[in-house]
């Protein structure tokens, strides 16, 4: 009897939790669902029924939007892709050395990297702009990629060092006894065991560079190199009243990340829940 009532109580609790969570999911998703509805409306539909779906759907909004922002999407894929992959490779090389070896200056060098996390963008935006202006990098891909690579290092090194240190020592010893050199040990032992955390870091780098508006807004003026999210800012002031294409452009800006996410969500959720993220 008592056992059954406990079971029923637990079941009731599960139902209660599910109801709360479903409501939160729906509220979280509504603005994005509304965006997709709005992206399929022409102007009369938009003015009369903005917040609910209306028929017929106007898919041509997407082709208008694509003509305006297609180039920006390719720019963003290139810039974020190169920055994320390069950033993770460099951070992994440094984190590996910090995690597994003793050498003179290790403590100081590591502190110097970590201390950078305290330096705000508000302090560095202007001098970084002056620097790239004097290096003649304005309006190139490099003006984004190089600072993004540098910016990804402190957090990446901190996260990966913690993770590498947690890997069992015996694995490394046996690989070394088998005659593998340092790069070999890293490639064959450390990297395969760290795929979830490396993938997580890569996705975090992609989203942070994809979402950046401030740095492109001061360094890019040429449409040929503009990134999608920065491009949207200009697009929305220019097409303020073409609501359908505007929302179609918003939707397009999320698609590459959605595709990336579909292929990596398992890795990402695994990486974030691995427990490496704490102080």
């Amino acid at each position: 009897m008592a056992k059954q009532s406990l079971k029923i109580r637990l079941k009731k609790m599960d139902i209660g939790i599910n109801i709360i969570l479903i409501i939160l999911v729906l509220l979280t998703f509504y603005p994005f669902v509304a965006m997709i509805f709005m992206s399929l409306k022409d102007n009369p539909q938009f003015i009369h029924a903005r917040w609910v779906p209306t028929l017929p759907f106007h898919f041509e909004n997407y082709s208008y939007a694509w003509q305006a922002v297609g180039q920006y999407v390719f720019n963003s894929i290139f810039v974020s892709g190169v920055s994320a992959v390069g950033g993770v490779i460099f951070a992994a090389l440094s984190a590996y050395v910090f995690a597994r070896f003793e050498f003179p200056g290790k403590g100081v060098l590591y502190m110097m990297v970590i201390a950078l996390m305290m330096i705000p963008g508000v302090l560095t935006l202007v001098p970084q702009f002056l620097l790239v202006r004097d290096l003649k990098l304005l309006d190139t891909y490099w003006v984004l990629i190089l600072p993004y690579l540098a910016g990804a290092q402190p957090f990446g090194i901190m996260l990966l060092r913690t993770f590498f240190e947690g890997l069992p020592h015996e694995l490394f010893e046996s690989a070394r006894l088998d005659g593998a050199n340092e790069l070999g040990v890293m490639r064959n032992i450390a990297i395969p065991l760290s795929m979830p955390i490396l993938g997580t870091l890569m996705i975090m780098n992609v989203t942070s560079t994809w979402n950046d508006v401030l740095w492109p807004s001061v360094t890019l003026s040429n449409n040929k190199v503009k990134t999608i999210v920065f491009g949207l800012w200009g697009f929305q002031s220019q097409y303020y009243t073409s609501w359908g294409p505007l929302n179609a452009a918003y939707t397009i800006s999320a698609l590459p990340l959605l595709i990336l996410f579909i292929f990596t969500s398992r890795l990402f959720i695994q990486g974030l829940t691995s427990g490496a993220l704490k102080v």
Binding site: A34, V229, A254, L257
Partner: peptide
């Protein structure tokens, strides 16, 4: 506190998916 790991995974996925929408788009919406 959910006992079903399937449900747990579903909600983790649902709350993480909005991350694909750029923050600026969220601001405009």
């Amino acid at each position: 506190n959910l006992r079903s790991s399937k449900q747990s995974y579903f909600y983790r996925l649902m709350f993480i998916v909005p991350m694909v929408v750029p923050g600026l788009v969220g601001t405009f919406l």
